[in-house]
């Protein structure tokens, strides 16, 4: 085993590498959810959107090369785009349905998880076997070390960098632009937004669709970068954890970034320990992100007051 060569150092290195590789889906989904929730709606269905994104990106990347004579350098990028579009399609359903009278957006989210995963598994069945071209990565490790372990650990995807840049951009968008102000107004006080002449329905529709676009991109990362294949277990609740993560990040895009990195790291604990030969409690370590999410929710929520930063109309039916 190559990891034996660096021994116990492999654990922190593995966790660092896991953070760099594994946090991007959390980041995209949580930013998407942050945008959605800022407008006052919850989209629990991003888990299904993530799966749809992963499946469509992988399928397009594979079909692009094998059927449509695309270059393997281009087809995965088309896949990313299509994943975003697939996400928008899912978002459209959610946005329309969750704004009907007396329809609860959480219930719609549950339905969209079932529908999205069903559709992704159905359409993705033929793509479980074949190997699709992957997105390229920046080889950061090559500059720092000659050790192949370090090199393979420190690969950074351009999508991840895009996500990292998106967080401050979204923060600026909310704080300093007119559309950002409209979204916050719609989320905090729909009546005030209406008085400003903003269409609450339209703003929410756009926010949900844009948020789902981001979640679709997150899915593309799963299947085209890391873990880098299409299987039915690829997301395993990451979309859902990202929703909880937004609460932890207090609806602040910058904090979504820190929280995503934290979760990416937590997810890597189990595999990193296994790599140095500790596989006792492997499944328990793999449950770490879920336990962590739960703990964070227990610590940050309070029955006494609403959370600081929470959009005022969040969770109220047709608020």
């Amino acid at each position: 085993m190559a990891t034996e060569a660096i021994g116990w150092l492999g654990v922190p290195l593995g966790i660092l590498a896991g953070t760099l590789r594994g946090s991007a889906p959390f980041l995209f989904v949580s930013l998407g959810e942050c945008l959605t929730e800022k407008s006052g709606k919850i989209n629990l269905g991003l888990e299904g959107t993530l799966l749809m994104g992963a499946m469509s990106a992988y399928a397009i990347s594979y079909l692009g090369v094998s059927q449509w004579n695309m270059s393997p350098a281009i087809s995965p990028w088309i896949g990313v785009l299509v994943a975003g579009l697939a996400g928008m399609g899912m978002g459209l359903i959610h946005a329309w349905l969750s704004q009907q009278p007396r329809v609860n957006d959480i219930a719609v989210g549950i339905a969209m998880i079932i529908f999205g995963s069903g559709l992704a598994f159905f359409l993705g069945k033929p793509f479980i076997q074949p190997q699709a071209p992957q997105l390229p990565s920046f080889e950061l490790g090559k500059l720092l070390s000659s050790s192949p372990i370090v090199q393979s650990a420190l690969q950074i995807s351009p999508l991840f960098i895009l996500g990292v840049l998106l967080a401050p951009a979204m923060n600026w968008f909310f704080k300093s632009t007119r559309p950002g102000l409209f979204i916050r107004a719609v989320g905090d006080s729909p009546d005030a937004a209406l008085a400003m002449g903003v269409s609450v329905k339209k703003v929410r529709m756009l926010c949900i669709i844009a948020g789902s676009f981001l979640a679709g991109i997150g899915g593309a990362y799963l299947s085209l970068v890391y873990p880098g294949s299409w299987t039915e277990r690829i997301s395993s609740g990451q979309g859902l954890m990202a929703v909880a993560l937004v609460i932890f990040a207090r609806w602040n895009p910058i904090q979504c970034l820190w929280a995503s990195l934290f979760f990416g790291g937590a997810q890597a604990i189990g595999p990193a320990l296994q790599a140095v030969g500790i596989d006792k409690g492997y499944y328990l370590f793999n449950a770490a992100p879920y336990v962590l999410t739960l703990l964070i929710m227990i610590l940050t929520c309070s029955p006494k007051k609403t959370l600081s930063g929470a959009p005022g109309a969040l969770g109220s039916i047709n608020g």
Binding site: I114, F115, S117, L119, F122, K125
Partner: peptide, 21 residues
């Protein structure tokens, strides 16, 4: 594929939710 049942369930769920309105 075996996911057919899941697709059907998702559709039922969405339509049932709409019918609530």
């Amino acid at each position: 594929p075996d996911a057919t049942a899941l697709v059907f369930q998702g559709l039922v769920f969405l339509v049932i939710l709409y019918s609530d309105s």
